[in-house]
């Protein structure tokens, strides 16, 4: 059992898709630092003393400006828009490849089918989650190099208000807020990547498998936009600076994605004959 898990994880992390996803994700993260954070840093170090002495002066800090906490710069917007594609890229289509190449049959005649399925699900989840949080962590680290980690001040933050979920955490323990959103991004990216697994049963095209999670993600965004409920779409829920007010929406969307991925994937898998 362990060998299957280990093997699947190793395959996920050494895949070309993982390298491409990290290259693209980290590229966006660095682009954000160069075009958003560096100008703020320059402004900060060139601020005249008279401004600093003003009791109303609030310098810019990490927590209001890193990519995971702001959706306005183009780079953040692109990152959160293509998030499902980045999450699927490392290992999302591997189940499709395994079925096509016969690898799946070779494994399942040596080991229990359920073990292979669970190992695959775990590896896809892990690779999808890490492909998203690694660029975010890099962005956070680079931002920390350039901006001070001062407590965010509500006078200069207009998106996190008293109606925002965990707003007290943001103002009192901002690092915990950052960790919380890294965790949210990890689990959502993971579960979004696994949507590709269940869709594998319904298509003959690898491209379809890769694009299906993005389509579901974008469909939800469009549907919520039509219903004037954009703040409940995963696109907004995943960013810490969008003023999300309802914790239930996180659970609801995660549960829906989990059902669409794990339950269909395992249920169809049990019914499928290996040979």
């Amino acid at each position: 059992m362990k060998a299957i898990y280990k093997n699947e994880i190793k395959r996920a992390f050494t895949s070309l898709g993982m390298k491409l996803a990290l290259l693209f994700g980290c590229g966006i993260a660095i682009w954000h630092v160069i075009s958003v954070i560096v100008p703020i840093h320059k402004l900060l170090i060139s601020t005249p003393q008279i401004y600093i002495e003003d009791p109303l002066y609030i310098p810019e800090g990490i927590f209001n400006n890193w990519m995971g906490n702001v959706l306005f710069p183009l780079q953040s917007y692109i990152f959160y828009l293509v998030l499902p594609l980045l999450a699927v890229l490392p290992f999302g289509a591997s189940f499709f490849d395994d079925r096509k190449s016969g690898y799946y049959v070779n494994v399942c005649i040596r080991e229990k089918k359920e073990v292979y399925y669970r190992g695959k699900y775990f590896a896809v989840f892990l690779s999808g989650g890490l492909a998203i949080i690694i660029p975010l962590v890099i962005n956070l680290m680079l931002t920390s190099l350039l901006l001070p980690a001062i407590y965010p001040d509500n006078a200069c933050n207009t998106t996190i208000t008293c109606r925002t979920m965990a707003y007290e955490l943001f103002y009192k323990q901002p690092w915990l807020y950052v960790l919380m959103f890294l965790f949210i991004n990890f689990v959502f990216a993971g579960v979004i990547a696994t949507l590709a697994l269940s869709y594998t049963y319904y298509t003959e095209h690898k491209f379809g498998v890769m694009v299906a999670p993005f389509l579901i993600y974008f469909f939800l965004y469009s549907l919520m936009n039509l219903l004037d409920l954009t703040e409940y779409s995963p696109f907004y829920l995943l960013n810490g600076g969008t003023g999300n007010s309802n914790i239930i929406s996180y659970f609801a969307i995660f549960f829906m994605f989990f059902c669409l991925s794990y339950l269909i994937y395992m249920w169809k898998g049990k019914r499928n004959d290996v040979l």
Partner: peptide, 8 residues
Amino acid sequence: NLGASYGH
């Protein structure tokens, strides 16, 4: 009252 935050 919600300023520029998201939500209508």
